[in-house]
Lab assay of single mutants.
Amino acid sequence: MSDQEAKPSTEDLGDKKEGEYIKLKVIGQDSSEIHFKVKMTTHLKKLKESYCQRQGVPMNSLRFLFEGQRIADNHTPKELGMEEEDVIEVYQEQTGGHSTV
């Protein structure tokens, strides 16, 4: 019986991991920090939209990076291997420009 009891508790931990929340720091170019608590399985588009709304800027005017890689709207913290207190960097999107060649 103890084996049966242990097995469901392991499964519960697996389920808990799926719905687990982590805190992420979003740091802007001006070094301002906003902290977000997100589920591991939530699409990061929600975090990006919330950040842009707080900053009063359109979402397409900023780019969000985690460990140097651009974050897509459909990425989740779990897919990117994010952990508690990880940092997302935000930069002004640069458009235009010309070749110097």
Score class of each variant (00 low, 15 high):
residue 43 H to S: 08
residue 74 N to E: 10
residue 78 K to E: 13
residue 53 Q to C: 01
residue 95 T to I: 13
residue 24 L to T: 08
residue 90 V to K: 03
residue 59 M to T: 14
residue 57 V to M: 08
residue 43 H to D: 11
residue 8 P to Y: 12
residue 84 E to L: 05
residue 5 E to D: 13
residue 97 G to F: 07
residue 32 S to W: 06
residue 43 H to Q: 11
residue 80 L to V: 02
residue 89 E to R: 07
residue 22 I to D: 01
residue 91 Y to W: 10
residue 9 S to E: 12
residue 42 T to L: 09
residue 4 Q to Y: 09
residue 78 K to M: 13
residue 68 G to Y: 01
residue 79 E to S: 06
residue 19 G to Q: 10
residue 67 E to M: 14
residue 80 L to G: 01
residue 14 G to P: 01
residue 57 V to E: 03
residue 91 Y to E: 07
residue 42 T to Y: 00
residue 17 K to E: 14
residue 78 K to D: 14
residue 50 S to C: 15
residue 90 V to Y: 03
residue 7 K to F: 08
residue 43 H to N: 09
residue 45 K to W: 06
residue 56 G to H: 15
residue 9 S to R: 11
residue 79 E to P: 00
residue 53 Q to W: 15
residue 78 K to P: 05
residue 27 I to K: 11
residue 3 D to L: 08
residue 35 H to M: 09
residue 16 K to E: 11
residue 37 K to F: 03
residue 97 G to D: 03
residue 76 T to P: 04
residue 56 G to M: 11
residue 7 K to W: 08
residue 34 I to Y: 05
residue 15 D to T: 05
residue 88 I to G: 04
residue 37 K to A: 13
residue 61 S to L: 09
residue 14 G to H: 15
residue 83 E to N: 10
residue 74 N to A: 10
residue 57 V to I: 14
residue 28 G to D: 06
residue 27 I to D: 03
residue 94 Q to W: 10
residue 68 G to P: 06
residue 45 K to Y: 05
residue 32 S to I: 10
residue 33 E to F: 01
residue 23 K to L: 13
residue 95 T to C: 09
residue 91 Y to K: 05
residue 66 F to D: 03
residue 50 S to L: 15
residue 34 I to H: 05
residue 79 E to V: 15
residue 77 P to Q: 03
residue 44 L to H: 02
residue 54 R to T: 05
residue 54 R to Q: 14
residue 78 K to C: 06
residue 68 G to F: 01
residue 12 D to P: 15
residue 19 G to C: 10
residue 92 Q to R: 13
residue 82 M to T: 01
residue 66 F to P: 02
residue 16 K to T: 11
residue 5 E to I: 00
residue 14 G to Q: 13
residue 32 S to T: 08
residue 88 I to H: 04
residue 53 Q to G: 06
residue 62 L to N: 06
residue 26 V to N: 00
residue 28 G to P: 04
residue 50 S to W: 11
residue 61 S to V: 02
residue 74 N to Q: 08
residue 83 E to H: 06
residue 39 K to V: 00
residue 88 I to N: 02
residue 82 M to K: 02
residue 18 E to I: 10
